[in-house]
């Protein structure tokens, strides 16, 4: 459509700005924005940890052992005299990497399986759901331990293991959304036009499934961070001395009687992060939950 003839048609940039404003514009409230800011800080720390002007997170300064916050160290030091603030910042990297990788793996594999199962139904769906039920019936921790024992303890291996654990949940979310989309008559209408199956999946089904799945991803990321800390408690997370939040909490529990802050500070950090992820994910999900019609 020639743009000069129809001045009303806006440039892409204007469109995008308006879309942003519609998604983020009104009604989120300050809580949402606080959460977003917090998540941005965490992400920033994870990205730029090496360049930030903080102490060396691996450098034990015996003199500072178990010092409280606002003494020699901003947030105190741990049992080996390492700077907690620096360790938090470097630990964020592990949490973010594990969170992103695990969630992407779960999302890609689980989402694809779910969409295919929901669209084609039949034997594939039944088989897939049976397998997923079996996986879900397993205690997840046992499964995770087995996986970690099998593929090792590197950052990547642990991400993959946790990601694997998320496949069933994603497959279910994607399948449920696909099922409700497939029954809509617009899918029939596309078929009647002669659309191929792949076109229907990409143009009609995917756009309606991807947003709820993505929003679910944020919530899932919070859970992944918790799972990582559970692994750390069992000493099965990324190997020391690499700082992780879970590892810090688990080390801190030894000093609970004498220096509470060593465990509490990473716990609070993690708690805030998980809370923010849940909050943002939830809000976005309700926002993206477009009904077919508002009326």
């Amino acid at each position: 459509m020639p743009a000069k003839k129809h001045p009303k048609i806006e440039s892409r940039a204007q469109n995008f700005a308006r879309a942003l404003q519609q998604v983020f514009g009104r009604g989120f409230g300050p809580g949402f924005w606080l959460a977003v800011v917090w998540l941005l800080i965490v992400a920033f720390c994870a990205l730029f940890a090496d360049w930030l002007p903080v102490r060396d997170p691996l450098d034990p300064v015996i003199a500072n052992r178990l010092n409280g916050p606002f003494t020699s160290n901003l947030l105190g030091a741990d049992g080996l005299g390492r700077d907690i603030f620096a360790r938090l910042i470097h630990g964020a990297r592990v949490s973010v990497v594990i969170g992103l990788t695990a969630v992407s793996i779960g999302m890609l594999i689980g989402g694809a399986l779910g969409i295919i199962a929901g669209y084609f139904r039949g034997h594939f769906e039944r088989a897939l759901m049976a397998v997923l039920d079996v996986i879900l019936a397993f205690p997840w921790l046992v499964l995770l331990l087995a996986l970690v024992a099998f593929i090792g303890q590197s950052l990547f291996a642990i991400s993959v293991a946790i990601g694997f654990l998320w496949i069933p949940a994603y497959a279910r979310v994607a399948r449920a959304n696909t099922l409700s989309v497939v029954q809509r008559e617009y899918v029939l209408a596309a078929k009647a036009m002669g659309a191929s199956t792949s076109r229907i999946l990409i143009k009609e089904v995917l756009p309606n499934v991807i947003l709820p799945v993505l929003a679910y991803g944020l919530v899932a990321m919070g859970l992944v961070i918790i799972v990582e800390s559970a692994l750390a408690f069992l000493g099965l997370s990324v190997e020391a001395p690499q700082p992780t939040w879970g590892g810090m909490i688990s080390e801190g529990k030894r000093h609970l009687a004498t220096a509470v802050h060593v465990a509490v500070i990473p716990s609070v950090t993690m708690f805030l992060t998980v809370l923010s992820l849940n909050f943002v994910g939830d809000r976005l999900r309700s926002r993206f939950d477009v009904k077919e019609s508002n009326l």
């Binding site: 449920a176 099922l179 409700s180 029954q183 809509r184 008559e185 009904k291 077919e292 019609s293 009326l295």
Partner: peptide
């Protein structure tokens, strides 16, 4: 509601 299919939850 005007539109029966969207007023009902398909699943």
């Amino acid at each position: 509601f005007q539109d029966p299919m969207t007023a009902l939850n398909p699943v």
